[in-house]
Measured scan of single mutants.
Amino acid sequence: KQVQVGDEKYTFDTPEEARKFAEKVAKEKNLKVTEKNGNFHVE
């Protein structure tokens, strides 16, 4: 599963790991997490 933050992409083995990372980054940057096709976008 992938997490996209701006132009950066991070790959994780499980959706749970990806979601945790996305939520942590979103909180730090005051952004929101959206899920698209099983991948997460922080925007």
Rank of each mutant, 00 (worst) to 15 (best):
V3E: 01
P15T: 14
Y10D: 01
K24E: 10
K1W: 15
A26I: 02
K27H: 10
V5R: 02
T34L: 10
N39M: 15
F12M: 01
T34D: 05
Q2Y: 15
K36R: 13
A22L: 04
E8N: 12
P15R: 14
E23I: 09
F40T: 03
E8G: 05
E28T: 07
K27T: 09
E23G: 04
E8K: 14
Q2C: 15
F12K: 00
K36P: 02
T11C: 14
K24R: 11
P15G: 08
E8M: 14
E17Q: 09
G38S: 04
L31R: 05
V42E: 02
K1S: 15
G38K: 02
E23Y: 14
E8W: 12
E17D: 09
V3W: 03
E35Q: 10
P15C: 13
V25N: 03
F40Y: 11
V25D: 01
K9W: 15
N30Y: 06
L31V: 07
E16T: 06
K32Y: 10
E17M: 07
V25L: 12
E8F: 13
K9P: 04
V42F: 06
N30M: 07
E17Y: 01
R19H: 05
G38P: 02
V25P: 00
N30H: 10
G6V: 04
D13K: 11
E16M: 06
E28K: 06
Y10H: 06
A26E: 02
F40E: 03
A18Q: 01
T14E: 06
E43W: 13
N39F: 10
E17T: 04
V3T: 02
T11A: 08
H41N: 07
N39E: 11
D13E: 11
K36M: 11
G6A: 06
K36V: 13
F12Y: 02
A18R: 01
E8T: 13
E17C: 09
V33Q: 02
V25W: 08
E35D: 06
D7N: 13
K1N: 14
K29E: 08
E17H: 04
N37P: 00
K32D: 06
N30L: 06
K36S: 10
E8L: 14
T34R: 09
V5M: 06
E28G: 06
F40P: 04
R19D: 00
K20W: 10
V3M: 01
H41V: 15
E23S: 06
E16P: 00
A26Q: 02
E43I: 13
R19W: 07
V33H: 02
F21D: 00
F21Q: 00
V33W: 08
Y10R: 04
K1F: 15
E16K: 05
P15N: 10
G38D: 04
V5W: 11
G38A: 02
G6H: 06
E35H: 08
K27W: 10
D13Q: 10
A22T: 00
T11S: 10
K20Q: 12
N39D: 08
T14Y: 04
Q2G: 07
Q4D: 05
K20P: 00
T14A: 04
G38Q: 04
K32N: 08
E23T: 07
R19K: 08
K20I: 12
K24P: 00
K24V: 06
A18N: 00
K24H: 08
D7E: 11
D7R: 12
F12P: 00
T34P: 03
K24C: 13
D13G: 10
E43Q: 10
V5P: 01
L31Q: 08
N39Q: 12
K27F: 12
T34M: 09
D13L: 09
K24M: 11
V25H: 05
E23P: 00
Y10P: 01
K27G: 08
E8P: 01
F40G: 03
A18Y: 01
K1I: 15
K1M: 12
K36E: 09
N30I: 04
V25Y: 10
N30G: 15
V3L: 02
G6P: 01
L31F: 09
N37D: 13
K27S: 11
V42A: 04
K27N: 10
T34C: 10
T11Q: 10
Q2T: 15
E17A: 10
V3R: 00
A22H: 01
D13W: 06
N39K: 09
E16A: 08
V42T: 04
E17F: 02
V33T: 03
V3F: 03
V3N: 01
E35C: 15
P15M: 14
K24G: 07
K20R: 13
D13F: 07
A22Q: 01
F12A: 01
T11Y: 14
K9Y: 13
Y10I: 04
D7P: 11
